[in-house]
């Protein structure tokens, strides 16, 4: 597979919409020396405007829903959204509540789902790779 859409490294932005921190620490664990996703150029950045991929954790609380939408809109195309963890996919253990409005795909379109409670670092890296492949398929033909 030739890389056309991204001629440079893939950057990710992480947003927590009310998760328990379990998946969040695994996302960082994926970046630190044991798993070292940074060697592939996958890096967490501090602003959605710099990011190619959005990592979302958590079942989306009432307060975070508008924020999540706004972050998604701030990202430049081409972009992909990855949901990390069961609660963002279907609610998981938080499947019914008065202060949750999720799951994530109820708020924004999602490309890749990484299940797990909590998702393992290997799974998260695999999810990012899948998102990368999808972006290549969709935008690669256009020559980036």
């Amino acid at each position: 597979m030739g890389i056309n859409a991204f001629k440079r490294a893939l950057w990710a932005f992480h947003v927590n919409t009310g998760s328990c921190n379990g998946c969040d620490i695994e996302i960082i664990a994926a970046l630190t020396p044991r798993y070292d996703a940074e060697r592939f150029g996958i890096k967490l950045v501090g602003s959605p405007r710099h990011a190619d991929v959005l990592l979302v954790t958590g079942p989306v609380t009432r307060q975070m829903a508008p924020a999540l939408k706004r972050i998604y809109e701030q990202m430049a195309d081409p972009k992909a959204v990855i949901v990390v963890g069961n609660c963002g996919i279907s609610g998981g253990v938080f499947h019914e509540s008065y202060n949750l409005v999720g799951p994530v795909d109820n708020i924004i379109p999602v490309d890749v789902y990484v299940p797990g409670c909590a998702a393992r670092p290997e799974a998260i890296i695999y999810g990012v790779v899948k998102a990368w492949e999808k972006l290549e398929k969709v935008y690669g033909a256009e020559g980036g």
Binding site: H14, N16, N21, D24, L44, P48
Partner: peptide, 8 residues
């Protein structure tokens, strides 16, 4: 909006 560094 968290510019949530991995600081989880």
């Amino acid at each position: 909006v968290g510019p949530v560094h991995p600081a989880l």
